[in-house]
Design a protein around this nucleic acid. Sequence first.
DNA 1: GATCGCATGTAAGTGGTTACATGATTTA
DNA 2: TAAATCATGTAACCACTTACATGCGATC
Lengths: 178, 178
Amino acid sequence: LLSEKPSTGYDIRKTIKNELSHFWNESYGQIYPILNGLADERLATRRRSKQKGKPDRQVYSITARGKQVLQEWLSDEPAMQTERNETLLKLLFAGNLDVADRLTLIEWYREKQRELLARLDDIELTLESDSESDSARRYGRLTISHGRAEARARMRWCDQALREIEAEPKPRTKRSRH
Amino acid sequence: LLSEKPSTGYDIRKTIKNELSHFWNESYGQIYPILNGLADERLATRRRSKQKGKPDRQVYSITARGKQVLQEWLSDEPAMQTERNETLLKLLFAGNLDVADRLTLIEWYREKQRELLARLDDIELTLESDSESDSARRYGRLTISHGRAEARARMRWCDQALREIEAEPKPRTKRSRH
DNA sequence: GATCGCATGTAAGTGGTTACATGATTTA
DNA sequence: TAAATCATGTAACCACTTACATGCGATC
């Protein structure tokens, strides 16, 4: 983010929350120590900026060396994140639940995707107004369309899953005969 | 997994790798201490089983209390995982790369989705032959179709992204005039 | 003779969140 | 007057991976 503009830890957190939260997140507990580390390694410089009535700001700017290291990192193959989907994990063991709870699980997941789509609309607006560079705006739009494609695919899957669960053959258990 | 059948840590790792790796992963460093913890909390019992020529197996079985705790966990709303996609993160700053490297990034991602689809075919076969219960097989199939829906959506997005990047207006930089 | 599968585990390190501490100003 | 926003940071804790240690038997 410093390659776009000099920022404080607080700024960075805000940007991530407003514009990147559909595919990335960092907490203060990560951001502040990392910025310190960047300064130690001379990948960024720090400048204290005084304000009236507000705490001092620590403004970090990327250095030439920082830009170089960034470019090297960008050229490396991305590390694939370990996929984790707790909904699917629960679904796999849904045999331990009754049918109503299985449906609730999928409906909950579907609702989350709907919420994500709504949030993507907000992020898109922020992105169009706040992006520093043309390329950040252009590629930001692509991250949005990626999010939408995934969310829509998941919603369609939910619809299919709901139909299948509703159509499940009722197993005649010992209990059901009473 | 113990609700399906009694298993050792080694078994569990294998099952996760062969049947759940498209949406979940655990390493030995997690599994063995967790199984120990389950036994401590009386959610599972441990039985040492001797073998000829092979190390002893520690076989864990779920207890009644374990089944109850499992059902409670299944009934809770899933905790949504923090989404992280390093490809999108790199894409957002792709303005620092030349156009060829931007295309390479998306092509790499597309290839990963193709590989995932191939792996899903393998997982499906394992699942059909190895699943313990009917419901595990039925819901296992649903996790596969979820994976396919996501992978296909991402591939279509890649195709779109590649077209857009190729069609980008060439910015007339100072360097390009030489 | 090398490597793979079986089998259990630990130690060190990394990555990450949450809660806390502090405190002024602005907004509801 | 309660709360949100601005602003920086740390400590405690949790989650997770990687590498290591051990060792037999089977396969290539």
